[in-house]
Design a protein around this nucleic acid. Sequence first.
DNA 1: CATGAATGAGGCTTCATTCAT
DNA 2: AATGAATGAAGCCTCATTCAT
Lengths: 212, 212, 212, 212
Amino acid sequence: MGIQERKERERERRRQQIIVAAKRVFSEKGFTKATMEDIAKEAELSPGTIYLYFKNKDELYASLSLRILQYLNIRLEHVAQQKGLSNDERIKALKEAMFDVYNFDPLVVINMFHLQSSETLKNLSPELLAEIKQLSQSSLKVISEIFAAGIQDGVFIEKHPVALADVLWALFSGVVLWEESKKIINGEKDYLKETLEVAFDIFGRGISKSVA
Amino acid sequence: MGIQERKERERERRRQQIIVAAKRVFSEKGFTKATMEDIAKEAELSPGTIYLYFKNKDELYASLSLRILQYLNIRLEHVAQQKGLSNDERIKALKEAMFDVYNFDPLVVINMFHLQSSETLKNLSPELLAEIKQLSQSSLKVISEIFAAGIQDGVFIEKHPVALADVLWALFSGVVLWEESKKIINGEKDYLKETLEVAFDIFGRGISKSVA
Amino acid sequence: MGIQERKERERERRRQQIIVAAKRVFSEKGFTKATMEDIAKEAELSPGTIYLYFKNKDELYASLSLRILQYLNIRLEHVAQQKGLSNDERIKALKEAMFDVYNFDPLVVINMFHLQSSETLKNLSPELLAEIKQLSQSSLKVISEIFAAGIQDGVFIEKHPVALADVLWALFSGVVLWEESKKIINGEKDYLKETLEVAFDIFGRGISKSVA
Amino acid sequence: MGIQERKERERERRRQQIIVAAKRVFSEKGFTKATMEDIAKEAELSPGTIYLYFKNKDELYASLSLRILQYLNIRLEHVAQQKGLSNDERIKALKEAMFDVYNFDPLVVINMFHLQSSETLKNLSPELLAEIKQLSQSSLKVISEIFAAGIQDGVFIEKHPVALADVLWALFSGVVLWEESKKIINGEKDYLKETLEVAFDIFGRGISKSVA
DNA sequence: CATGAATGAGGCTTCATTCAT
DNA sequence: AATGAATGAAGCCTCATTCAT
């Protein structure tokens, strides 16, 4: 077992090494301009080795998102399962989870939303697409259930909870992407956190039935 | 004169022909996968001809967005200049303008937000980037001025008006992109209009100081 | 007749117009980088018109050389036919003729030698190549006959007169091309005339049987 | 070490393989008409492989010349450093060095002079141009120093030694190029060696102060 | 497992040339 | 005769991927 385990661990470490490199390179150059050789160099490996761990460039790119989506999922489920929270508290926890996920690895979150809103999505293998689908649906399900509870309790406006979840997701990704774009277009400093705060605040007020 | 004019008109028609083809092909395949030959075939022209009207693939892609950004600009300015509107009415007009622009040419609006939130932006010529910058800044300025007025009148919450404009823009683009993605990920029908309605509604409520 | 003649004259004038433009453009950009459109613009004509006067780009390029080769031919024949010149005087007249031809239109002479020492030569139509062949052979024949006379008179060294003619031609073209290259390589001022003087001087001394 | 060395050797062998192929193809078709695919086929490699060894077509072309220029340089320096040679002997050694370089690889020498006297020079990368500049300047410097010594000793005519070096260089390249052209124009056999002999002979006599 | 040299398909773009007006 | 828009063939080069070592 010991040997088996160590091999397993080493394999995982190697994957990490590649993922870290890929993250950097994709973030800097974008998907198309980044070459497998760039990533190999950044990982201090040969191009061939990368293919021992990832089927192809698309999968490597998508796998970055998978990890963060998984993390987001766990955090959201945690929020859903916490007992004894008021609706407002749960909404707040929701925001915090999303915020934390972003802070956990901003580059990867940006990558994920880039992937989500890009042509690359169309070229993924069905299996990978299915995995992404499952994860994102799961996240959205958790979110919408939270909203559903709030609506039931009469504190949130009576919109379809799935729509509310979609809006929250769109708002989150929209802010992340738009702040990224502004950096490129305007060469402007990054106001992501501030804007995200404002956005979540408005959203929270917007779905509440009454605002003091 | 007549001859000059006719040539001018024919040139413009040809440009349109190319733009229409490009719109279709880019929408279907995404920027990278779409080839100039695809577009030429769709336009029933030779590849060389496209280069008589557009400097290169990037410019062709971006030009789709430029046109819609210009249109958006005009619509927004119109909203800003309308006399005698209450803050709520102006916000409503704002939403309608954005909605109309989307409906005017959904494919192009989606393309525009794809461009905005993608690596392609990084590879644009400085001139083109400058043009996009100017147009998007202009749009955001109009939006933020509307918010500023509402804040001054005490009907909107006291956030920085530029931040509010960013949030609205991010929300709009986020919803458009996310609904597009859902179509790919889930193969799901397009709930864009409904989601956009909900999103705008929440946003409107969220920035109002008091909600009945 | 008058009409016919005028047409003829106008046609010739148009040809000239194109040739002048081609000369400038080819000199500035070289054969490959120069485009037919460049030349058309310089001539203030449309690309199509050029093809009414020249079969294709190669022929246009070569036709520049044809004219100067014809002129050189005339000058050389004149030298050969002048009565009562000593061998030295005839050699001097030879140099002067070559020098004059260069000064008559340096750009075209450079072009001619570029053509002569270039790949383009391989792509010319057989007819054009034949014409060039005829002209250059004629020039070299005149030169070699002058040398033959001098050898017969015992004042020039006893080398094959054709070889001497080839050497003189090679020297002339070599100096012109090398001074051109130096301008590009070193960004250096043009010492063509001085170098040509030295070259002709050395050549003259070199073929003389005795040098004072 | 052994493995490193073998790789090194194989890399060099591959470079040679490409250079040999390029030499043939460029000689036959000229720079413009030769395609990278032609060269790849001739080398029995894929087009992509060539780019692992040469940055682009220009560099490949120029690299042919660089090698021969380096060789010429070495030979010329050797002539300059030989002790105890009379001026005449040194001139003779100079001729022999140039002759040898030509014989070492005629195709490449012809290529080199084609490059030198062509538009291609204008399109070279600055680094490559600098390298060529450095090498040719070095060669010419050695030549002119030999002439300077002879002038000082009173056995050569009192012209500027740099001008003499230019003339010799021009003569060499002029003869090589002109004999090549004659093959194309006249389909004539190659008299290069004979003509070069005559040319050097005349040059030698021409720069000597007194000829017996 | 790791390597990295080699592959070769394919994209963007240019430009000589044509031809309907 | 002149135009100039349109053509489309063809070239350079990149880079994801493979495979012999």
